[in-house]
Design a protein around this nucleic acid. Sequence first.
DNA 1: CGACCGACGAGATTCAGTCTCGACACCATG
DNA 2: CATGGTGTCGAGACTGAATCTCGTCGGTCG
Lengths: 151, 151
Amino acid sequence: MTDGDTFVRALDTAGYRLTEPRRAVAGLIGGRRGYFTAADLLAEAKSRRLGIGRATIFRALELFTELNLVERLDLPNGEHAYVECARAHHHHVICSSCGRTTEVEDCGMQAVAEEVARRSGYQIASHRLELFGLCPKCAAQSVPDRSRLQA
Amino acid sequence: MTDGDTFVRALDTAGYRLTEPRRAVAGLIGGRRGYFTAADLLAEAKSRRLGIGRATIFRALELFTELNLVERLDLPNGEHAYVECARAHHHHVICSSCGRTTEVEDCGMQAVAEEVARRSGYQIASHRLELFGLCPKCAAQSVPDRSRLQA
DNA sequence: CGACCGACGAGATTCAGTCTCGACACCATG
DNA sequence: CATGGTGTCGAGACTGAATCTCGTCGGTCG
């Protein structure tokens, strides 16, 4: 998806140093199509012999999260995962089969939040919404009712 | 909130044994007003010298979750917490100040999910929504603009 | 070119959550 | 009432994710 360029620029803009390990982590993230866990990156870094330490991966993820380059999400099984993303406020649809994620915009959540605020009396400050299901491809493969080809 | 009675009845109905430790955990949960973590219960059980083991707490929580007596939620900081709740599908509003949680019903989420499905092409199977903000009391305390008393 | 400070890797550490195990309680038989 | 099987228990070992520490390295700026 992103080739890491966005990351580099964002780091630069925010006044962080542009170090080799950070580029490497950015590269690892860029090479992924869906969500990933810290352990995934760690494993890949190790297998590619990038020589990046555990701490560095976590530091980089923390940094990228802070810069809104990456977002942390919680899978239903309790795992913590990350997805690359750029926008400020949005949500993710996560394919429970292949792990692909897609960003979606508000889609009326604002109205829901307001409704909740009205009913509960709370001052809603933020919310998180995660949707799970099958992405078009996986849906086509598992239930090929309308599409006739399966690959 | 609940005094554990609901728990006892649910266990009974579902065919699970009504053991003392389970009652104890139910009691611990009942004595809480907001969300709580497994560690919270653990600590309280220990300080009260209830003699309940770690595993038992987790087993009970797992059981209660399965029976829809309790729901697991993920706090923004990544912690795993639980809230007492009864209904099948609903969401939680969590006070980021005092930790109180309130259940809210769908509030139009169904429409949002459908809209997301339409835009993304995904088959949405489930979703999770968590709202964070200030509960009426905390809001009144921190910004007493309309209410004049502060306690 | 030199010094400072942020970032680094390695590994120790912590902590939540799970698993294992032997003991025990409950229920259903005989 | 004795017996056996099943489900649950507590304790503690274990696992793996995440954090922290520390001495070193390297980028940046004077």
